[in-house]
Write a protein that binds this DNA or RNA. Structure first.
Lengths: 190, 190
DNA sequence: TTGCAGTGTTGAAAGTAATGAACATGCCAA
DNA sequence: TTGGCATGTTCATTACTTTCAACACTGCAA
């Protein structure tokens, strides 16, 4: 009598919750305590054996923390996507640095692929990512000065880089034309 | 024993569902039939008397149709937001036309405010929005040629426009510098 | 009026999620 | 080994969502 896809949805929710919880470094009991539910509830949800109420899920997600909208932003339909038209890239950039992401979100992905466009004079400033991740890329057009730790180098077309995101790093456009870089990085652990 | 905010959340979900259902022009029974649940379920959810399961809510929303992520994108926390830092604007642009939206979504809003940046040569092409809406804006820098219906005019700094979105319209950057426009438009009715 | 079709609401019963207390397992130290 | 402490899992009970059927109401037509 029950529609079979309910189990499918419940399992999807469960797998996602487990990934997020483990990514946050929390045990079922730790998250349960913070969320005000029992560890059984989380266990059953993660195993896909129940179809949680939105209230329960909301409280649990608050302990991670993540919002319901972001949680559901990863929908099963999206995971089938393989090809992306150029205009379908998700724009996440700000200012003179344009970042176009392949896919609308990172959920379930091991990598984030970016098309980075540095306008003339674009400069990320010195940034220090706190999360444990790695990133690398290849320059497609223009030139960019890359500083990683104590090392500094101007990269041209075809040049590449790869480093640990925890190392302080900086990108600065140089030369007369915009710089385009295709990069990849492991996502921040939730 | 129960936390009082559960009822608050359930009511929030209910009010939102009712607004969306009525906006879609569906009766409780019509939506229930399409979603594979009973009208009682929808009635109780909308009244905030129950805390629906995600499976039930997902099936119901599919009949509207709207996804869970979009449904929850309107969160009570978000409605308090009044000020937005420049870098917090939501980038929704594509290609040489950058669109930065004030706020992450339109739910509960009567208007969408955009910061539009047209790169050199940027051109929207002739567009025809099917929904009943109105839009207007003021040029902040640069120059843009605007075509609305049979009328065409080049707007400079301080110039403005206002028209019905259903009228075919086109924006094309002209002159030696990028063009920046602050615009507003009424959102598509859900 | 009467009947009919539509609307949303409300009861008791059926079905299911959440609880609380067990259980099994693995790891580390004494 | 033994104990202790953490992990995730399972089961019967409790609590709640969902259903089914009935209800009250409105508008419209015969």
């Amino acid at each position: 009598m029950n529609m079979p896809n309910i189990d499918q949805d419940a399992l999807e929710v469960g797998l996602r919750l487990r990934a997020l919880r483990e990514g946050a470094g929390l045990s079922q009991r730790a998250l349960a305590k913070q969320a005000g539910v029992t560890n059984s509830t989380i266990s059953l949800i993660e195993a896909g054996k129940v179809n949680p109420s939105v209230g329960a899920l909301k409280r649990i997600l608050e302990g991670i923390p993540i919002g319901l909208s972001d949680f559901f932003a990863y929908e099963p339909d999206g995971e089938k996507t393989v090809f992306y038209a150029a205009e379908d890239l998700t724009e996440i950039g700000k200012g003179s640095l344009s970042l176009k992401q392949v896919g609308a979100n990172l959920y379930g992905r091991a990598m984030m692929i970016l098309l980075e466009t540095y306008d003339l004079g674009a400069d990320t400033g010195r940034v220090m990512y706190g999360h444990d991740a790695e990133e690398g890329g290849i320059v497609v057009s223009g030139r960019v000065e890359v500083t990683v730790g104590e090392e500094r180098k101007v990269l041209g077309v075809g040049d590449a880089y790869y480093f640990d995101s925890r190392t302080p790093h900086r990108f600065r456009q140089v030369g007369p034309e915009k710089c385009v870089v295709v990069s990849a990085c492991t996502p921040p652990t939730f």
